[in-house]
Amino acid sequence: MDECMLALADRVWRGLGSSVAKGCPSARRGRCSGRCEGACVTKIAYACAADEPSMPEAVHRYVRLAFNVGSAIATMTTHPAVAELDGLARLVLGECERTRQFARFSLLADGSYLASFKPKANTVPFVAAHFARRMGTERFCLVDPVHCVAALHEAGDRRCHVIQLDQALAAALAARDDVSPDERYVRTMWKRLYDSLALDGRGPDERGYDLRASWMPKRFWDDLPELDPRAGNPGAYVPERYQSA
């Protein structure tokens, strides 16, 4: 995005922050404090990450309304423009949760971790902090080849760098397969655990519907090692830490 547009967007964003803060009981020093986790303003950022073609117009309607009514926007939850924006934000939040749940990392030969994940919204910028907290001791990369965004983390850093990539680079990164020799063994172990947990008498046939597919959408299945038939055999190589056992 070019510099001018960025500066302009930033200006609108800030203006909005102080506009909705006027008269808001949770505001601090005339600005939206984010103490209520910024439902009024922050949710615009989430909505903007939606892939829906209706997104730009919906955000526009909401922003105009917010400038008009100020802090009253917080209570106008039944207004169509607010409800529409909430719908988009909710969708993106759901997809963020799925990213946290189903992104799977692999250990690469160079000792760093890589996950490629294909969400239905641009979630990586929102979940990068979560993975930085979770994997603070590791060097890792989480790449989304659909939206061409990656979160890069160096071991010991408190946060990730989130960068926009061009399509070719994103695809190349996502396709890296120079995994560590340990990887096959650990994936096989995970699949083994997964397979062992299945219980008879409680499946889709007894229940009448497929509970698994509703929690874990099928569009992610191809990238889950626990559902990958190739992870069925550990092979001859056993990582050293499992040899003495």
Binding site: Q101, R134, Y194, L211, R212
Partner: peptide, 26 residues
């Protein structure tokens, strides 16, 4: 919260990473 030099943290909401064929969360 995470601690320097340590791996991982705990989030109070939890996180289901996978689901068994009968739909239980793992």
């Amino acid at each position: 919260l995470p601690q320097a030099g340590k791996l991982g943290m705990a989030s109070s909401a939890g996180c289901c990473h996978s689901f068994t064929p009968d739909g239980r969360c793992i």
